[in-house]
Amino acid sequence: MDASPTTPRRVGVLLAGGVGARVGLDRPKQLVELHGRTILEHSLRGLHDHDLIDEVVVVMAPGHLDVARSVAAAYDKVTAVLPGGSTRTQSTLAALAHLGEADCHVLFHDAARPLLPRRVVTDCLTALGTYAAVATAVPSTDTLLEVGPERTLRSVPPRDSLQRAQTPQGFHAEVLRRAYEVAAGDPGFVATDDCSVVHRYLPDVPVAVVAGDERTLKVTTKLDLVLVEALMRLDEEG
């Protein structure tokens, strides 16, 4: 479904710039094959096959662009495969630079999360009709501890107010560009995700939080590979 004249273009950005050192493999984790496809392709399909997404941009780890382009060739909504940076921030900025000054709604999704429910994409895009920034999260089922530098307990935050961040994260592109422009003037700037940049540097912009999904696991360790493949098998069985 193409964006109407009154609806900004909807772009999915697949962030695949990491190398996945903690998985302990000889290649980026997004190129590991699970259930007949690479993790990269599973994640790409989650964005590409959604009828509200008009375009997909893949940001891939340098040195592996040819593989990513080969995978993306089968997906007609993919308009670019870009080299990522050494940090998530650099990869996000590469995607924003590619998109230029166009007014669009953009979803950033980690390629390391290959199980992306359609409902989550729909909810993020719907929320962007009201909010300029959208996070995805699930409630924390464990009690979380804040630990001091000497591995001693500092505090126990109340669990009911805490949620675990996932992706996608969605934005009006011009708002995220502005947040990074402000952040560039901060010599102590460090970010692990894009919503935190908007929250910190554009405090007047509310960030909506939509419900994620427990199945949208991030592949970080070898155990995660086993869990995600088991979930894929369950999906196939029905």
Rank of each mutant, 00 (worst) to 15 (best):
L40Y: 01
R69I: 04
L25M: 01
T38W: 06
G100V: 00
A72Y: 11
G100S: 06
G20H: 09
H105Y: 12
A74Y: 03
L107K: 13
G20E: 00
P83D: 13
P8A: 07
D123G: 04
G84Q: 04
Y75M: 01
L125Y: 12
L96V: 05
R37W: 01
L25T: 03
H42M: 01
G20Q: 04
A111L: 07
G17S: 06
H98R: 13
A74V: 00
V67T: 15
V56E: 04
L128W: 05
L15S: 13
T92W: 07
V59S: 10
L14S: 11
G17C: 01
G12E: 09
R9S: 07
D54P: 14
T6F: 08
L93K: 10
T6N: 11
D54H: 14
V121G: 13
G12N: 11
V121M: 12
V59D: 15
V59G: 12
D66K: 14
H50Y: 08
H48E: 03
V11M: 06
G17W: 00
G18A: 10
A73Q: 15
H98G: 02
L31V: 11
T6C: 04
E101C: 05
L99N: 09
R22V: 00
R118F: 04
T79R: 14
H98D: 11
H98V: 01
A74S: 13
G18I: 00
A127H: 07
H48T: 11
H50A: 02
K29I: 00
S70W: 08
E41T: 11
V32N: 03
R119Y: 02
A97Q: 13
L82M: 00
G100P: 14
V13D: 13
H98F: 13
E55W: 02
G46C: 02
G63F: 06
T6V: 12
H98M: 02
S91R: 09
A16W: 01
V13P: 06
A73H: 14
D66W: 12
V56F: 03
Y75D: 10
V71M: 03
C124M: 05
T79E: 12
R69V: 07
G84W: 03
V81C: 03
E55H: 09
L25A: 08
P28K: 10
H109K: 15
V32K: 13
L44A: 02
A72R: 15
V71G: 12
V58A: 07
E55P: 05
D26G: 12
L125K: 09
H64E: 08
A94F: 01
T7W: 11
E101D: 15
L25K: 14
G100F: 01
T92D: 07
L47D: 03
P5Y: 08
H35P: 02
K29D: 12
R27P: 05
H50G: 06
I39R: 10
V13Y: 09
L115W: 00
S86D: 10
V120P: 14
R119F: 05
T79I: 01
T7N: 15
L40E: 10
A95N: 05
L107I: 11
R88V: 11
A95D: 02
P62N: 15
V19L: 08
G84V: 10
L128H: 05
A73N: 07
A97M: 00
T87L: 08
E33F: 03
R22T: 07
A97C: 02
C124L: 05
A68W: 06
R69P: 15
L116V: 04
A102N: 12
V120R: 08
D51M: 09
R9M: 03
